[in-house]
């Protein structure tokens, strides 16, 4: 665990040493802040003391930002040759994968925690704000981000090129984020149910209402673990080759 933590901290420091973290976080906060408070379906136009506008915007903005954060995780290290150096050290592939995954999660947690002023404002703006629903919304964003981060890390382990990794993560993300839900709508019976269960939006929107269902948790955890296992397999295959 210590080694995972050391790798996670090193990765997080790298984010903040380069400008990537600041650019990504500023873009994320700018976009969510703009659409939550200033324009279109913002809090004031809805007239409700609720963070639903924020969760809706964050649902889409994180979908684009996470692949941009994760694209360099392995692709850049492979291109520059530092991955081989890292893997020769006394750390297992799993520790490297989990360390990098944890660092992305910490960065996303920082991004979401910077939206706490929104929560405080909403609490002041309405009497009887539903705190349970808000915390469930944050949990849903965190779980969804974890799933996309794991997918992004996996695609990054498949290529030496960051852009390829980014596009691949985006394409896979689109399947879960959009396509499966649409396909479910076009089918009926069991196939519809299967695609419906695969759609991120259905699980996300269920949690944002304030209900935690083991099926939703199991979905996101399974996506994370599945992608991380594939990442580890991709790294091991590299050794085996």
């Amino acid at each position: 665990m210590d080694k995972i933590w050391i790798i996670a901290k090193r990765e997080l420091k790298t984010f903040f040493d380069s400008q990537i973290a600041y650019i990504m976080l500023t873009l994320f906060l700018g976009l969510t802040g703009f659409f939550t408070w200033i324009m279109i379906s913002d809090v004031f136009s809805s007239g409700q003391a609720s963070l639903i506008p924020f969760f809706n915007v964050a649902y889409w903005s994180l979908f684009f930002f996470i692949p941009a954060i994760t694209m360099k995780m392995f692709a850049e290290e492979k291109r520059s040759g530092t991955l081989e150096l890292l893997l020769t050290k006394a750390v297992s592939d799993w520790q490297v994968v989990l360390g990098k995954f944890l660092s992305v999660l910490m960065l996303i947690a920082i991004a979401l925690s910077l939206s706490i002023p929104y929560y405080i404002s909403i609490t002041y703006l309405g009497d009887g704000v539903d705190h349970g629903t808000i915390w469930c919304g944050y949990l849903a964003l965190m779980l969804m981000s974890a799933a996309y981060a794991a997918i992004g890390i996996w695609t990054s382990s498949l290529s030496n090129n960051q852009i390829t990794a980014f596009l691949l993560a985006l394409v896979i993300g689109i399947l879960f984020h959009l396509m499966f839900g649409m396909v479910a709508g076009e089918l009926s019976g069991l196939p519809s149910d299967v695609f419906y269960q695969l759609s991120t939006y259905n699980h996300f929107s269920s949690m944002v209402r304030g209900v935690i269902d083991t099926r939703d948790i199991a979905y996101f955890v399974a996506l994370c673990l599945g992608a991380l296992v594939l990442t580890e397999a991709a790294l091991t295959k590299r050794h085996e080759a």
Partner: peptide, 12 residues
Amino acid sequence: AGMFNLRLDFTS
């Protein structure tokens, strides 16, 4: 998880 699902309602 779908067959033995547990549901917690956190709404106020």
